[in-house]
Design a protein around this nucleic acid. Structure first.
Length: 383
DNA sequence: AGTACCGGGTTCTGCCATAAGG
DNA sequence: CCTTATGGCAGAACCCGGTACT
């Protein structure tokens, strides 16, 4: 560390800031002054400034870059009382990976502790991420989106173990890529935490009489990449709730959880219950039985993802548009589409005198492109 | 050719609480 | 007391198109 720090201070003054920025934001002191100041402070044997005082040169360096120092200090005050920081190393490192200065400033603003990571640490962590990603650009993108996911943990060994562990479940590189892209926090979880979630899934599988619990866990995780950033408490309550309230047989449960059911396992538990109750009430008001509530969920569980208000609106516009609720229960996937889209389609079809009773409702469940060409064909035939 | 079935893409971070370590 | 590392939480859709089937 000391050696690293010395190198940092002795680094030749490469002017990285554009002159205009320098003029605008950096008036009285120079970089050399700052370095000198820091070198002096380095002789001090303490690791941090006294309570309340902060590293002035660090603040200057960062504000020159365009870091929102106020925000950064509010988020992680401790970083600013440290004597040894590696902000220039981090800046150089990220710049060399293709990050713009704006991105770097934004990263530090949102996760200041990033500047405490050493050169070796950064190199190693980047290397591990790059094993999964195809380019530095992809990594930069994720860092810009979620600096915390990359920088929160200082434990590269754990990161490596996570990758090995997930691979050992049979998760393929393509899916690892999806996991790291969509839920990068997974890789900063401790191995133990990830393992706990996987074991929860495996236990669920075994308790349902499943034979390949690894495959079960792998499938559920691939279906819903957010599972591993949720608490086991949440996922467990959701699974228990679904099994109990739908009175699923083992086979039904295994099928549902490895299919579209996986999508809703990361819902907040209260939300799942609320949406479930609402669906029950709404269907009841439309004259449906409990069995039909079960049926609609088994046909497409992600309708539990739709908030009460939105779901009611969708069902209302469909039933008012002359669609039998029973056909919705059979093909609930069209509830994926927005209220706006559904209304527009109903209007278009109504104009053409489309009869849902004769022709079914699957016409509503098409991509925009397909729906348009379908409309064109109907017009040709009809007129 | 038209339809049914199915799976995938997007971006889901930023904050707080607490344990761990000193 | 301080810090860092880590777990957990809220909030809650919409759409596209490949391909097998008919």
């Amino acid at each position: 560390m000391a050696f690293q720090q010395v190198l940092f201070f002795l680094r030749p003054l490469r002017r990285r800031l554009s002159p205009s920025v320098t003029v605008l934001r950096y008036s009285s002191t120079t970089r050399a002054d700052n370095n000198e100041a820091k070198t002096d402070l380095n002789d001090d044997k303490t690791e941090s400034f006294g309570s309340g005082s902060e590293n002035k040169s660090l603040l200057d360096n960062l504000s020159v870059l365009g870091v929102d120092v106020q925000m950064a200090q509010r988020r992680q005050p401790g970083v600013f009382r440290k004597i040894h920081t590696n902000e220039q190393g981090l800046i150089d490192f990220l710049e060399q990976k293709g990050a713009s200065r704006d991105i770097i400033a934004s990263i530090i603003s949102r996760f200041p502790r990033a500047i405490t990571r050493s050169e070796e640490h950064l190199e190693e962590r980047w290397r591990l991420w790059r094993n999964i990603f195809n380019s530095d650009d992809e990594v930069v993108n994720i860092l810009n989106r979620s600096p915390e996911s990359f920088f929160r943990s200082s434990d590269n060994g754990n990161l490596e173990k996570n990758i090995l562990y997930l691979s050992s479940l049979g998760i393929q590189p393509k899916d690892l890529h999806r996991l790291l892209t969509m839920a990068p926090r997974i890789f900063s979880n401790t191995l133990a935490l990830n393992r706990t979630m996987v074991e929860l899934l495996e236990n669920v599988c075994m308790s349902l009489g499943g034979t390949d619990s690894k495959k079960f866990a792998r499938t559920v995780i691939s279906r819903n990449v957010y599972i591993l950033i949720r608490s086991t408490k949440r996922v467990r309550s959701n699974i228990e709730f679904l099994l109990r309230s739908l009175e699923l047989s083992d086979e039904e449960a295994l099928k549902l959880l490895q299919g579209h059911g996986a999508k809703i396992l990361d819902l907040s538990h209260e939300n799942m219950k609320t949406n479930f109750r609402n669906l029950q009430l709404k269907l009841k008001s439309l004259g449906c039985s409990q069995g039909q509530v079960r049926e609609i969920i088994l046909n497409y569980a992600p309708i539990l993802f739709v908030s009460s208000d939105t779901l009611n609106q969708k069902l209302d516009c469909l039933t008012e548009g002359g669609i039998d609720i029973r056909s919705i229960i059979e093909k609930p996937k069209l509830l994926d589409y927005s209220v706006t889209t559904l209304k527009q389609r109903l209007k278009d079809l109504h104009k053409l005198g489309y009869d849902f009773k004769v022709n079914g409702i699957s016409v509503l469940d098409l991509s925009n492109k397909r729906f348009k060409s379908k409309l064109d064909k109907l017009r040709e035939l009809g007129v």
